[in-house]
């Protein structure tokens, strides 16, 4: 209850308005390129290279039918899902117990091991693609979903361990203790109590793993060719010798990203805290 005089009050409301306007401008800077892409997906080839750029025009749905019929959107989506779904499930399966272990147990060299795992996420894709490609060639698993799944595990597992660990850390020990008193085994506590309590975090982890794998470009381009080609590499199909097919490309990208966008918005809270590995949880 400060500032009872009129002056500061007016100033305050003005400040609020400025805040809102600037906030909208900032938001627009980040959304505009995506809106622009959406516009591209409804433009003809000539409209897309027009000068000055067209903001108002008669939309065409031609690009979407082309993306689906001519450029086989759904078959690429199927390829993507064949890789991404097992990747995410396996990542969680492997990393959930580990993250629980890191959260709930004290053991020798715990910190060193945890940081070693984190550092694995940092390996540059270009550095590991070469050996993956060569080994993949020896094992005859190039262009099979398995090689992408394995490659994606290498960055998803460390990530999921760290992220889930932060969510398990949040669960009060007392809750688990109560479970133990009731005679549940360690595994029972994990499955019946901790996991359900961390389901928000689980969803966020799954979504981030999905985004990372679904959008991955370098591995997908070099380790697969025909049978396993995933959506992000499809852009190369639109980057033609004589022209970028802006319309079909934008349509394909929007179709591909839309579900991810919605999912990410829905779990935004856990997403943000998970991305920081729980560092922001008021400690």
């Amino acid at each position: 209850m400060k500032g009872l005089s009129l002056g500061p009050k007016v100033r305050k409301s003005l400040k609020r308005k400025v805040l809102v306007v600037v906030g909208i401008i900032i938001a627009l800077v980040f959304i505009f390129p995506i809106i622009w892409m959406a516009e591209m997906s409804f433009k003809t080839k000539a409209q897309n290279i027009a000068l000055p750029p067209l903001f108002v025009f008669t939309p065409t749905f031609e690009n979407y039918s082309q993306a689906i019929d001519k450029y086989n959107f759904f078959s690429f989506l199927k390829n993507s899902l064949i890789v991404v779904v097992p990747t995410v499930l396996l990542s969680l399966l492997v990393s959930l117990p580990a993250s629980y272990g890191f959260s709930r147990f004290n053991f020798k060299k715990k910190k060193d091991i945890a940081f070693w795992i984190l550092s694995l996420r940092m390996a540059p894709a270009m550095a590991v693609i070469l050996p993956y490609f060569v080994i993949g060639g020896f094992l005859r698993i190039l262009d099979k979903p398995i090689i992408l799944i394995v490659a994606y595990l290498s960055f998803n597992v460390p990530f999921a361990i760290w992220m889930m660990r932060s969510f398990f850390d949040e669960i009060p020990l007392e809750v688990e203790e109560a479970g133990m008193v009731e005679g549940l085994s360690r595994l029972g506590v994990f499955l019946r109590i901790s996991l359900p309590l961390a389901r928000g975090g689980l969803a966020a982890t799954a979504i981030l793993c999905t985004i990372q794998s679904y959008n991955e470009f370098a591995f997908a381009l070099f380790l697969t060719s025909f049978n396993t080609r995933t959506l992000p590499t499809v852009v190369t199909q639109f980057q033609s010798h004589m022209g970028i097919l802006w319309g079909p490309m934008a349509a394909t990208s929007l179709l591909a990203t839309f579900p991810i966008m919605i999912a990410a918005i829905l779990v935004r809270k856990s997403l943000v805290s998970g991305m920081s590995f729980g560092m922001v949880k008021g400690k």
Binding site: F133, G136, R140, L142, D143, T236, Q239, S240
Partner: peptide
Amino acid sequence: TMNELMLRDKEMMEFASHT
């Protein structure tokens, strides 16, 4: 179908592992 610059890599790599 892909960007011509990647086509060569692709064909060479497929050959390298005889897929």
